[in-house]
Design a binder for these strands. Structure first.
Length: 858
RNA sequence: GGGCUCGUGGUCUAGUGGUUAUGACGUCGCCCUUACACGGCGGAGGUCCCCGGUUCGAAUCCGGGCGAGCCCA
C-alpha cells in the first residue's frame, strides 16, 4: 500500500533546503517568477494552494528543462486588517499607544502568521527558494518602497492634490476605488420640492445643503424650459443653476437630479464637467460640518432624519418610495463610503501608456487582458496612495513648520520614518530646521507593486523584465495594474513577458469559500487525509483561468492513481532487482515493447506541448490515461508472462522496457506529484528525480508500424478476454488452441500466448473453415409484413431445408424456394444465423478484429 | 445597467465545423488472474439549456432568449 503521508514526511526531511536556490551567476538561461506575496493572515488557504501549485508546476517543469529558476516567496504585510486584529488582540486602539509601539505589535503579530503559513507552503512541497524570501514590512524592503516614492516624485509622477477621495467614515481613512465593494440595499427615494416646477428625487436628502446644481436631460421636453434658470435650495439660503446633461436618466424619479459635492462618483463627474463650485459639508469623521448650517455636528444618518422632518413640515416632502440601490461600501468594515475632497498624495495614471505596455505582455488566458483594459478605460481619477493609518510604509516627507515647504527625503536617508526622525538638512526655502513629519502612510499596493523590481535587485537590476507573473484574476485591476504602472515609471519597461491568471477556488457547493457559508476546506485537512500530492493533482485538474470547484472526488481519484503508480513501481522494482539498464537490450525488443515505447514517446511530446501552454489538466490527464489504461492494463498484462517465463533475451527486453517507461513516467509526473515521483524514482534509480532532465522524445523509438502491430496485439488479447468473460471463464483460463489469421506480416504470438495462457498459432493463409448453419432465426419484423398470411407456410418450408441449402443461403445471400408451386426468393438478411465453424474437423469460434480473424478452439 | 466566462448522462467534465459525443465519480453484473480489490473485465445511463440562422453537415460558428458565476458601474 502506498502511504502518502509517510512518504511525503520522509522526503520533507531528506530534501535539502538549498535544492532550489537560484544563482545569478548560473550560465543556464534564467527564469524569474514574480510570485504573489500573500497577506499574512496566518492561514495558507486553498486559494493560495491553487495559485502556488500552478507556480510550482511551472517552476519544476522549467527547472527540469535546464532553466535556472527563481521562485521567491514574499509576504505583503502592511494594511488595515492586521491593525484591526492587533487592536482586538490587545484590546487597544491604535492611537492609545505611540505609533512605533503599535507598529511593533503589528510586526510581531505578522511574523507569527508568516511562520504558520511557511509551514503549510513547505508541507505542500513547493520548490520555493527560501533564500529569496522578502517581507514588505522589513526595512530592507520598505526602504525600496520609499525609494520608489522619491524617484517617482522627482519625475513628477507623484503629486499632492486636493481631490475627491473615497472615505470610510468608520475607518476614518481614505480608500482606493479598488477597495470599494457594492451591496444592494433597500432605501427610500424621496421626492422633494425645491420649487413649484422643480421636484427632485434623491436617496441622500442629507446632502441637500451640499447641492451645487440641478440637472435635467437636454432632450427631456418636460423640463427644457427650466434650463438656465435658478432655484433656491431648501434648508439653505442660496440658489443654484439648472443645467442640462446627457447623463441624467429621465426615467429615474422625476427626471430632475440634484448635484452634490459629493453624493457619488457621478456627482464628481458632473462637478468636473460643469466646473461647479465645491460645497463640502462632510468631515472625515463622517459628520456634517458648519457648511451644513443647523445640521452641523450630526452624522449623515441623523442629518437625514432631521432634514426629512424639516422638509415634511415645510410641505416639501412629496412622497417616498422604497427602492433597491447599490451602495458602495468599505471592503473591510462594510460601512457605506462617502466621497469628500481632501488633500492627498496621488500617483499619475497614464492610461494609454499602461495599456500599450499591457498589450506587449502575453496574457494567459488571453481574454483576461480585457479585464485590465476595461478597468483602465473606466478609471476616473488618479491613484490615491496616502492612507491615514499606522501599519504601513511611511511617506518619506516632511513639511517645514515655518513656510510649509515639502521636503522629500534624500535617497541615502532611507529607510526613514518621518514621524520619528527629522531631516538632517534645513528647509531649502526658508532655512528653518523645524519640521512636521508626514503622518500619512502609503497604500499597501505601493509595497507590492514593485515586487518584480525588488526580486531583480532594483535599483541595480540584474535582469529585467522578469519572465512570469502568476496571479489570480481577482487582483488584475490592482496588483497587475499597479505593477505595470510602477514598472513603467521606475524602469521604463514591462514587468514581465508573460502573465498567467488562475481562477478562484469555490467550495463543493459551487459558492465562494467563506467561513459564513461553512464550505471552507483547509489544505491541511486534505494533506492529512490524502497527502500533498493528491491535493496538487486536484489543483492541476482545472483549466487555467477558470474558477475551480474543490472536489473530494478529484482528490480521491488522484490518491487512487498514486496507488496504481506505486503498484507499477513495485512491480518494476520486484522484477528488475537483478537487472541494470543497458542500451544493448534495445536490440531484443519485441512488438509489444516497441509499441509501448513508441506510444510513451508520443506521450512525452504531448505532455511537453501541454506544459508549454499551461494546460496542466491536459498534461496530467494524458499521463494518467497512458499510465493506467495503456501501460498497466494492457502492456503490463501482456508482458507479465514473458517476464515470468520468457527466455533470457525476451526477459531483458521486457525489463529494459519497464525500467525505461518508469523512468520517463516518474519524470513526467514529478512537477505534479513531487513526493510520489521521488519515492518511485528512488526504488529503481539514483539521485533526486527533481534534478533530472524532463523527458525528451526519443525519435528512434517512434514507430507507426509497431504502434499498429501493438494495437492489434492489444485488441486480440482484449477480444479473447472478452470471449472468456462472456463464457464466465476466468481470465487466465487456458484455451486449447488459438489460430490467428492477420493482415500483418507478423505478430508476436509469444506475448499473445502468454497473456491468454493458451497456445497461439499464426497462419499465413486464411484457414480452411467448414461453415455449417446450426440454426437460423427469422426476423419476423421483415418477413411478417412482406408475406402476410403466407409467412407461416414459407417459414414452415424453410425449417425443413437441408443443411446444404442453409449454407447456400448464408454464403450466396439468397435462395430460391418453392412454396405451393410458387417460386420465392428469400434473402439472408431476413435471418439471424447461428453458425458452427470447424477447422480440421474441430469446432472453433470466430472473433473478428479490424485486421485479424481469430479462431478459438475450446 | 455594462463587460467577461460558462451551460454536455445522476454529479463533475473533455470536446471550438465532419463516423457511433470523452473521461472521472456514482450505479449494475462477473472476477480475490503471484504490482494494485484504493484492483480487473463488462454493461446501463445523454432532447449536448431553449429558439432561430449560416452550412451538404452544428455540442462546436452567428443572432436572440433563459439560467449561473465573476468583475465592474
Amino acid at each position: 500500500m502506498y502511504n502518502a503521508k509517510e512518504v511525503e514526511e520522509k522526503w520533507l526531511k531528506c530534501w535539502k533546503e538549498d535544492m532550489y536556490s537560484f544563482d545569478w551567476n548560473s550560465k543556464k538561461p534564467h527564469y524569474i517568477i514574480d510570485t504573489p506575496p500573500p497577506y499574512p493572515t496566518g492561514s495558507f488557504h486553498l486559494g493560495h494552494a491553487l495559485n502556488w501549485c500552478i507556480i510550482d508546476f511551472i517552476a519544476r517543469y522549467k527547472r527540469m528543462n535546464g532553466y535556472e529558476v527563481m521562485f521567491p516567496q514574499g509576504w505583503d504585510c502592511h494594511g488595515l486588517p492586521t491593525e484591526v486584529k492587533v487592536e482586538e488582540k490587545y484590546r487597544i486602539k491604535k492611537n492609545d499607544v505611540p505609533r512605533d509601539e503599535f507598529r511593533k505589535l503589528c510586526v510581531d503579530f505578522t511574523m507569527q502568521n508568516i511562520k504558520l503559513m511557511r509551514e503549510t507552503a513547505k508541507r505542500l512541497g513547493f520548490s520555493i527558494d527560501w533564500s529569496k524570501e522578502y517581507i514588505t514590512m522589513k526595512p530592507e524592503y520598505f526602504s525600496k518602497t520609499q525609494l520608489s516614492f522619491i524617484r517617482m516624485y522627482k519625475k513628477g509622477l507623484i503629486y499632492k492634490g486636493y481631490h475627491p477621495v473615497v472615505l470610510c467614515p468608520r475607518c476614518e481613512t481614505t480608500i482606493a476605488l479598488a477597495e470599494i465593494e457594492y451591496r444592494k440595499t433597500k432605501t427610500f427615494l424621496n421626492y422633494i420640492k425645491f420649487s413649484d416646477d422643480v421636484v427632485i428625487a434623491t436617496t441622500r436628502p442629507e446632502l441637500i445643503p451640499a447641492c451645487v446644481a440641478i440637472a435635467v436631460h437636454p432632450k427631456d421636453e418636460r423640463y427644457k424650459h427650466l434650463v438656465g434658470k435658478k432655484v433656491k435650495v431648501p434648508t439653505t439660503n442660496y440658489e443654484v443653476q439648472i443645467i442640462a446633461d446627457e447623463d441624467v436618466d429621465p426615467s429615474f424619479g422625476t427626471g430632475i437630479v440634484m448635484i452634490c459635492t459629493f453624493g457619488d462618483r457621478q456627482d464628481v463627474k458632473w462637478w468636473k464637467r460643469h466646473k461647479l463650485e465645491l460645497r463640502n459639508i462632510l468631515d472625515r469623521n463622517g459628520k456634517l460640518n458648519e457648511f451644513a448650517g443647523k445640521y452641523a455636528g450630526l452624522t449623515t444618518k441623523e442629518a437625514r432624519k432631521r432634514i426629512l422632518e424639516d422638509l415634511a413640515l415645510e410641505g416639501r416632502l412629496i412622497k417616498q418610495e422604497e427602492i433597491e440601490q447599490n451602495v458602495g461600501i468599505c471592503w473591510r468594515c462594510k460601512t457605506p463610503v462617502e466621497i469628500i475632497p481632501a488633500e492627498q498624495w496621488f500617483v499619475k495614471v497614464e492610461k494609454e501608456k499602461i495599456l500599450e505596455a499591457a498589450r506587449r505582455i502575453k496574457w494567459v488566458p488571453q481574454h483576461m487582458f480585457s479585464r485590465l483594459e476595461s478597468w483602465v478605460e473606466a478609471m476616473e481619477w488618479d491613484w490615491v496612495i496616502s492612507r491615514q493609518r499606522v501599519f504601513a510604509t511611511p511617506i518619506p516627507v516632511w513639511y517645514c513648520k515655518k513656510c510649509g515647504e515639502i521636503l522629500v527625503a534624500k535617497e541615502e536617508w532611507l529607510p526613514v520614518d518621518p514621524t520619528l526622525t527629522s531631516p538632517s538638512e534645513n528647509c531649502p526655502r526658508c532655512g528653518s530646521n523645524e519640521f512636521r513629519g508626514e503622518t500619512d502612510v502609503l497604500d499597501t499596493w505601493m509595497d507590492s507593486s514593485i515586487t518584480p523590481l525588488v526580486i531583480t535587485g532594483w535599483p541595480n537590476v540584474k535582469e529585467y523584465p522578469t519572465h512570469l507573473r502568476p496571479q489570480g484574476h481577482d487582483i488584475i485591476r490592482t496588483w497587475a495594474f499597479y505593477t505595470i504602472l510602477r514598472s513603467l515609471a521606475l524602469q521604463n519597461e514591462i514587468p514581465w513577458y508573460e502573465i498567467v491568471i488562475n481562477g478562484m477556488v469555490f467550495g463543493e457547493d459551487g459558492r465562494k469559500m467563506s467561513k459564513s457559508l461553512g464550505n471552507v476546506i483547509a489544505p491541511e485537512e486534505i494533506v492529512e487525509k490524502y497527502g500533498a500530492d493528491a491535493l496538487r493533482m486536484w489543483a492541476a485538474s482545472g483549466v487555467i483561468g477558470d474558477d475551480i470547484i474543490f472536489s473530494w472526488k478529484e482528490v480521491v481519484a488522484a490518491s487512487r492513481f498514486q496507488q496504481k503508480f506505486w503498484s507499477i513501481t513495485n512491480f518494476t522494482a520486484m522484477n528488475t532487482k537483478d537487472y541494470r539498464m543497458s542500451e544493448e537490450d534495445r536490440r531484443h525488443l519485441r512488438d509489444a515493447d516497441r509499441w509501448i515505447l513508441s506510444k510513451l514517446n508520443k506521450l512525452v511530446a504531448e505532455v511537453r506541448d501541454h506544459m508549454e501552454n499551461y494546460r496542466f489538466n491536459e498534461a496530467l490527464k494524458a499521463i494518467r490515461t497512458f499510465t493506467w489504461y495503456e501501460y498497466a492494463d494492457n502492456y503490463l498484462e501482456i508482458v507479465k508472462n514473458r517476464i515470468y517465463s520468457g527466455s533470457e533475451e525476451e526477459r531483458r527486453a521486457a525489463k529494459y522496457t519497464i525500467c525505461y517507461v518508469l523512468s520517463v513516467l516518474t519524470r513526467l509526473i514529478a512537477p505534479f506529484a513531487p513526493f510520489m515521483a521521488e519515492e518511485c524514482w528512488n526504488q529503481i534509480f539514483d539521485g533526486s528525480v527533481h534534478l533530472q532532465k524532463y523527458p525528451e522524445v526519443d525519435k528512434e523509438l517512434l514507430s507507426e508500424e509497431f504502434e499498429k502491430k501493438g494495437e492489434e496485439v492489444k485488441e486480440i488479447v482484449a477480444s479473447i478476454r472478452k470471449y472468456k468473460h462472456d463464457r464466465n471463464l476466468a481470465l487466465n483460463a487456458p484455451l486449447k488452441r488459438i489460430i490467428i489469421f492477420t493482415k500483418f506480416d507478423s505478430l508476436d504470438t509469444k506475448d499473445i500466448s502468454g497473456a491468454t495462457n493458451s497456445k497461439v498459432e499464426l497462419v499465413k493463409e486464411e484457414p480452411n473453415v467448414e461453415i455449417s448453419v446450426k440454426s437460423l432465426k427469422p426476423k419476423f419484423a421483415i418477413i411478417g409484413p412482406m408475406f402476410k398470411d403466407k409467412a407461416k407456410k414459407i417459414l414452415g418450408k424453410i425449417s425443413q431445408l437441408e443443411k446444404e441449402d442453409l449454407k447456400k443461403l448464408y454464403s450466396e445471400r439468397e435462395l430460391d424456394i418453392e412454396v405451393e408451386n410458387e417460386k420465392i426468393r428469400i434473402r439472408s438478411d431476413w435471418f439471424e444465423f447461428e453458425l458452427e465453424r470447424k477447422i480440421e474437423g474441430k469446432k472453433v469460434v470466430l472473433i473478428e478484429t479490424k485486421n485479424s480473424l481469430i479462431f478459438i478452439e475450446e
